[in-house]
Amino acid sequence: MNTSNIKKYAPQARNDFIAAMRKQAAKYGITADSILPAEQKGGLLLIGDQVFPLSVMKPRDKLIKRIQTSSFEQTIDYIAYSWFNRLCAIRYMECKGLLDHGRRVLSSADGSAGLPQILEECLDIELPGLNTSRVAELKLDGNKDEELYRELLLAQCHALNQVMPLLFEQVSDESELLLPDNLTKTDSLIRDLVSSIPEEDWSDVQIIGWLYQFYISEKKDQVIGKVVKSEDIPAATQLFTPNWIVKYLVQNSVGRLWMMAQPDSTLASEWEYYIQPAEQSDEVNAQLKQLIDVRISEDGDTLNPESITVLDPACGKRYIHTFNNTSYMLV
C-alpha cells in the first residue's frame, strides 16, 4: 500500500477535526476559558445572545460534565478522534460495498467528493430509528439538505453500533452535539476525507491502522522523549502493526506449536514468514515433547488450534491473524 496520501492527509485532519469540534462547542457557549450560563425560556434555550431548541440542554450538560471530569482539551481531542474514526470506517465500508442499503454515505454514487449518494436517494433508505416521514418532509422542502444529511449520518452510525459495537461506540449525546455543521459543503471534513485519499487506497483494511498512526504522529512527536502525561500515553506508545509483522508473530508462535504437534504437516510451506527452529539437544526436545503431549492430552487425540493461547506482553493494540482457518487475536 502507498501510504503517502494518508501521511499527508491524517495529521492535518487531526488539526481540522479538533478545530471543528472547538468551533461547535463555542457555538453552544463552551470554550477552553469559559462556559456561558444557559437559561430555559419555555421551549427554547438561551445561551448568550443565541437561541437554541430545548433539546440542546441535555447533551450540553453532559458535555460540560465530561469537561469538568477531565478537561476541555482532552474532551475535544477524544470526540474529534471518535468522529474521525467513525467517518474513516464508514468510508472503508462504502468503498467495499459493505453497507446494507448499498448506498454511499460520504461520497457520490460515482465515488467522487460530491453530494453523498445517501442524501440523493434518501427516500429509498431504511435504517433503524430513521424517521422516514421526517426524511421525506426535509427532502421535499428542498432547502434543508444539511439538516437531512445530519440525520442520515447519525442514523447510519446508530445502525453500525448495533452490529459492530467494538468499532462503533454508542454515539452519545455530547458527541452528536459536536458533529460539525455544513457537512455537505465543499470545504467540509467529509469532502476533504473523500478527496484527499484515492479510492484505490481503501481496498486494503490496513488503511484504518495507517490512518490512526499518522493521525497521532504530530502529537507523538510533541510528547516523545518527555515526561508523558497519562492522557498522552497512547500517542507515545501505540503503533500500528503491519500485516506482515502480525503474520510473522503468529506463524512463529501458534504456527510453530502446531508444527511441533504435527511434524508431518505441510502447512508451514504456505507460510512466508515461518522460520524453521534451530536444532535442539535431546534434553530440550524431550521437554518440548512433554509440553506438546500435555496439550494434546487436554484437547483429546490431537492438538486443537482453538485451545492455544498466546501472550504478547509488549503489545499495545489488538491484532488478528487467521491460522488454519482459526482467527487469533493477540492482545
Score class of each variant (00 low, 15 high):
L288T: 12
K139N: 12
T237P: 10
C157A: 06
I67Q: 13
Q68N: 12
T241L: 15
D16S: 10
Q170I: 10
S230D: 15
E218S: 12
S269E: 14
A314S: 13
K247I: 03
L106E: 01
L193H: 00
L183Q: 04
N85H: 12
Y248N: 03
S82F: 04
A136S: 07
E94Q: 06
Q162H: 09
T309Q: 11
V171G: 01
A19M: 00
Y248Q: 02
R66L: 15
K219R: 10
I197S: 00
E147L: 11
E283W: 14
L311I: 10
S82L: 07
D141Q: 03
K8I: 07
M259F: 00
L148P: 03
G225F: 09
A20S: 13
M260L: 13
E218F: 05
G42Q: 06
D61G: 09
G114R: 08
K229H: 13
A89T: 05
N15Y: 11
N143P: 04
D181E: 11
A89Q: 06
Y328S: 10
D16T: 03
L288M: 14
D141R: 01
K96R: 15
T184M: 08
P59K: 04
K289G: 10
K144H: 03
L183S: 02
S230N: 14
D221L: 08
H321E: 12
G102S: 09
W202C: 02
A10W: 03
W244I: 03
